[in-house]
Amino acid sequence: MAVIEVKNLSYVYSKKTPYEKKALDNVSFEINEGEFFGIVGATGSGKSTLISHFNVLNKPQTGSVKVLGMDCSEKKNFLAVRFGVGMVFQYPEYQLFEDTVAKDVAFGPKNMKLPKEEIDRRVKESLDLVGLPYEVYGERSPFELSGGEKRRAAIAGVIAMEPKILVLDEVAAGLDPEGRDEILKLIKRLQKEKCPTIVLISHNMDDIAALSDRILVMANGKIELLDTPKEVFKNVKKMTDLGLGLPTATGMQVELASRGVKFDDVCVTFDELASQIEKIKAGGNGYVS
């Protein structure tokens, strides 16, 4: 079942001025329930404009966007759509503002006018889920947390609204390796336990390849590719020309292939590539000098 349906969507910034810019150009696709959906594209390719439609920060100018069956052009749906789609923007820690972590996380549910007990339950649950136990972190100032912790606190604030779809824009950027690992693990866990549909924007092809069921590749406001990681990264030249590059494993596979190693299949993770190399070394299929 499709939870997001985008049909013939176009979007122009600064319409009828000398700065007019077409950010989206006749884009159509669907995201299914339970899908881990990756979006990649160079800076300025239209990714952010696109996801801003998912909770009606941008209203469709031409074409249509339906979220959870609700038309995003109809004003009566705006609130329900916004509660249904949790957005975690780049550097979400800059959006922390309350004097305690618990209050910050409670901000969303409060706006949903939920009863106090329900808000408390959600705050506790969300903080526990992101690995900032309420008892330890609840009463601390968000500004005393480390970079990775702040980001997780910001994510907790979004999860507390219990959205059906979670949209994450460059969620690991600027974090140290440990923080990255924690966030990526958290996202997988969230998908399992809390929010089955995840949309992830990233510049990191290794992460995108390892996590996504399907990847949408954008360039100049248009869809270039939409397929599984293997099918997307088969387009070696296109991905390189678009300035996006390949997962490290695919890049090495391409190098080996250019020297004459024949592989059964495209590898997008190190695990896959190691297995293929193992097989070829053991004299299995595939290898031709």
Partner: peptide, 15 residues
Amino acid sequence: AKLDLPPVAKFRNML
């Protein structure tokens, strides 16, 4: 120092 290996080094270790 909570540092990570570069991707290539991780793959090397896996091999």
